[in-house]
Design a protein around this nucleic acid. Structure first.
Lengths: 349, 349
DNA sequence: CTGAAAGCGCTTACAG
DNA sequence: CTGAAAGCGCTTACAG
């Protein structure tokens, strides 16, 4: 590999001047620039990023830190990673992946190595210890998700309120009045204070209150098998529910299967909406799920933009909340006659 | 951040000696080592990996290059990435992700930057131009998948023969004699010479020949919606097929849904086995799919091991082929009576 | 507009 | 066992 020294010699200039044209950081006369560019082309010069990193004290590498919990990341996580990597690349950054344990000592160790300029934090808990850690180490970061009070932090997240509003409105407009939320089971240790679950719950309770329908909330562990189980529980606890919003991608498929096994038809007897699901996942269900998609690609892009902005010293980007698209599947329909009657009654009262 | 200079000053030694104990690369007297270790602890010293990389000409960074095609990576890709990153980490390497286009110019550009010591290549085509590129640039690499003739290359891959054998044997042992393969549609441009499809086809034809059953092969585009369509086509083209092996995770779910819509019961009328599927995906189907799982975690680990071995100059690891586990779901059963009779007849003939 | 020189924080022969 | 010194390939004040 040719170095700047080689290029400089060939063009008859100093390496400083070569650096100026490579980085376009100082004015260089047209003729000199031409000679240098010719020399670079002839030698196939590529600037060594490691040397640049050491000299400039900026590695232009970003880390994506995600807790490698026992549950695998959702389908949209790949979209997220890919999207973040591409956006990073477009800003001339690289993206390393750090599947760190919950233990923040591991994160501290990695940060201490000086490899990265900034960190993207996924799967943020409401009181995430990693946030304080990064702050104390002076390492710039952006969150995908957010802590309880994210004031002053760079973050991007799903707009849970709007997402759930889309789901509930759809059911409501079809005539449903008994609408349950199946959200994450927060009794599972690693999900005790899991932001998405908490926020989805809050959004549901607010909407239920506004619209005046009874709150029916069930928690489900993530996974198709648990979705099957929750179908039984739902039928036992609230047999008159006609509309369900479920917030767990794998469990949603299981719920459909479980209802099917129980002889409850979707959508004739029960309508199901998946809050935050990969589009392909929704199509893979039987019937295809009505769903709000996960804005994974967009969030990956925005998170990198926020972090890069912070690193390059521009004005920080404001927090970004995003909602996926509403996709009409075949898992929703007006409630069965009895339900509709009851709803009608209530409406006229 | 404390540097080696700081540590050396504090311990009253030269930075060379500090380097020797940090890297455990030369004998150092116990007392000196103690003083240095104490100084490191007091200063919270962390060796700067960028400086080390420049000086040692080894960055200890690996790249995972995957073509960001229009189709998203399968669920197991996340497992793969995570597994590779963890294994890399255990060898004190980092993993950067490079979602490069099919155009190998982009890969050449990235390699030329000198950031990584080696490359893991995913989604390898039978005549993958990236292989020649990396060889010509002198960049060590390992394949996940393999080219047509992978002699001399480091690679790990799924054992398609054994995987399909597991699927077919299961159906055969249940009494099925009309067994179709639904594999990838190779008429889609980016999948023309896609190794997994080609190898799965070959394995099927070999097995069909050995066991003496008629070859029935359909191609399906990846995606749940196409799985639905293929259900119709299968029913039209080969209505008497009782056993199906499908090799596309998203399409498998769609196939079940499509058969259901057509009034064909699984497994009573048709048995379906998914070749190479994420376990959770199989559970998410209705009925739960009998499947051979994708050995994504294992392959990620093995690929990194092979590459690291090559980089550290040990004896190269031999190629590794791996088969996932056979998971019995509820999508397979003996063929319906007519099919069974025919099979019995044939067997006694 | 251009160059000489210091420096980024390490590793690694080479000497002793 | 330990150290002085060169060098990895760049960037960046500082001078001119």
């Amino acid at each position: 590999m040719a170095t700047m020294r080689d290029v400089a010699d060939r063009a008859g200039v100093s390496i400083a001047t070569v650096s100026f044209v490579v980085n376009n950081t100082k004015p260089v006369s047209a003729s000199t620039r031409e000679r240098i560019e010719a020399a670079m082309a002839e030698l196939g010069f590529r600037r060594n990023v490691v040397a640049r990193a050491l000299a400039s004290r900026r590695t232009r590498i970003l880390a994506l830190a995600y807790p490698a919990l026992e549950h695998r990341l959702s389908t949209s996580a790949v979209e997220f990673i890919t999207s973040a990597a591409r956006e990073a690349s477009s800003h001339d950054y690289h993206l390393v992946v750090w599947p760190v344990s919950n233990d923040s000592a591991e994160l501290a160790d990695l940060v201490g190595q000086g490899l990265v300029d900034g960190v993207l934090l996924m799967e943020v808990q409401l009181d995430d210890p990693r946030v304080g850690l990064l702050q104390s180490m002076g390492m710039p970061f952006a969150l995908i998700g957010r802590t309880e009070d994210p004031t002053g932090l760079d973050y991007v997240d799903i707009d849970f309120d709007t997402s759930l509003e889309l789901c509930v409105s759809h059911l409501w407009d079809l005539g449903h009045r008994r609408i349950a939320l199946i959200s994450g089971d927060q009794s599972v240790p690693s999900f005790e204070r899991y932001g998405p679950y908490v926020r989805m719950d809050q959004a549901y309770r607010r909407i239920a209150n506004e619209r005046g329908f009874e709150e029916i909330v069930l928690g489900v562990r993530s996974g198709a098998r648990y979705g099957r189980e929750i179908a039984t529980e739902l039928t036992r606890i609230a047999p008159d529910v006609t509309g369900v919003v479920i917030f767990d991608e794998p469990a949603a498929a299981g719920l459909l299967a479980g209802l099917h096994t129980l002889g409850r038809r979707v959508p004739e007897d029960v309508s199901v909406v998946s809050a935050i699901a990969a589009i392909d996942q929704a199509f893979a269900c039987d019937p295809p799920l009505t769903a709000v998609t996960a804005p994974g690609v967009e969030l990956g892009l925005l998170a990198v933009q926020a972090l890069v902005r912070r690193l390059e010293g521009g004005t920080p980007l404001p927090p970004q909340l995003r909602t996926g698209s509403f996709v009409l599947g075949e898992s929703t329909a007006p409630p069965p006659a009895s339900g509709r009657r009851r709803a009608a009654t209530r409406r006229t009262s």
